[in-house]
């Protein structure tokens, strides 16, 4: 395999088209895309773990850490550079994951799901209790600069959009490489049969630990980009329904391909925004029906529509 293969080229080409789109597409559309791509990064975190058979119902934890790092870094530490802030969120999130990952990797199945949910809800509780951070109202993110340049209004949104596309592309390339490297293959083996992997002389726990850290890192980036785009953060980012939505999108896309979460997140954003517009009273029902439809007709996720390998074994 060459360093960048066909899929890699496709990813880069798509990113280039999306960047070019910044100057053509209407602002509302680029904004939806920004949020969807940022969300997709968190979904990537969920998918990375899902490939190893773990479903996190608390990925909002790292999403929220990434977001709050942007706000707090600006308000408390006086950091205003977007890249420094994103790096701050990344470090904070991976640091946190390094500690709780030691506990989390002992759990599987539903227990992993529930414990991750509980931890994320504890962060939610702490933030709700913190009146200086605005409790549930959260606070706004002001005056972010990009390598020393500050943009105003619409240009700032374009800057965030381009940044999001670039970061997403970089993450996608990294995840794609690791998925097809040894560690990615072992993860699938762990999902299928953990004990056999142990017999092969590998330590599933430390591999899962590594995946947990990677998931935390990309989720924090997603949170940071969301905070930059909306300019507002609140504890809802750590609430369990937010995490539930990430799992929802992960299943919508499927775990077959690294691009699937991006496609699913964009599709989800459009389904939701149009559902809210046309049936403001029953948009949840429409989401539910779409999800059921996907599970019934496309059990491998949306990507199975694109995949040429039609006879994938279940």
């Amino acid at each position: 395999m060459t360093y960048i293969d066909r899929t890699g080229l496709w990813l880069i080409a798509t990113a280039a088209i999306l960047v070019a789109g910044a100057f053509v597409l209407p602002h509302w559309l680029t904004f939806i895309l920004t949020l969807a791509l940022a969300k997709a990064l968190v979904v990537q975190g969920v998918v990375v773990q899902m490939r190893a058979g773990l479903v996190s119902f608390g990925q909002g934890l790292f999403f929220c850490v990434g977001g709050y790092a942007i706000g707090l870094g600006g308000n408390l530490l006086g950091i205003h550079d977007a890249f420094a802030l994103l790096a701050l969120g990344l470090v904070a999130s991976v640091g946190l994951a390094a500690v709780i990952g030691l506990l989390m990797t002992r759990y599987r199945d539903i227990f992993f799901a529930m414990l991750s949910l509980a931890l994320s809800m504890i962060l939610f509780g702490v933030l709700v209790k913190s009146q200086t951070l605005g409790s549930t109202d959260g606070f706004n993110v002001h005056g972010v600069s990009y390598l020393g340049v500050t943009f105003d209004g619409a240009n700032q949104k374009i800057a965030v959009y381009i940044l999001t596309v670039v970061v997403s592309c970089a993450c996608a390339l990294f995840l794609y490489r690791s998925q097809h490297a040894g560690i990615g293959r072992v993860c699938e083996a762990i999902r299928e049969n953990e004990i056999r992997v142990e017999y092969l002389g590998l330590s599933p726990r430390w591999i899962l630990y590594a995946q947990y850290l990677v998931a935390a890192a990309v989720s924090a980036l997603g949170g940071g980009l969301t905070a930059l785009a909306t300019g507002h953060i609140d504890p809802e980012m750590a609430f369990w329904t937010t995490s539930g939505e990430f799992v929802f999108i992960a299943l919508l896309g499927g775990t077959m391909h690294v691009a699937a979460p991006f496609v699913a997140a964009v599709l989800f954003a459009f389904v939701r925004t149009y559902a809210i517009e046309f049936t403001p009273h029953t948009w949840q029902m429409i989401l539910g029906l779409v999800l059921l439809g996907i599970i019934i007709f496309l059990p491998k996720g949306l990507w199975s529509l694109v995949s040429r390998n039609r006879r994938v074994k279940a």
Partner: peptide, 9 residues
């Protein structure tokens, strides 16, 4: 979860 969304509405 899908059922939850549907039943809620």
């Amino acid at each position: 979860y899908a059922l939850l969304l549907i039943l809620e509405d």
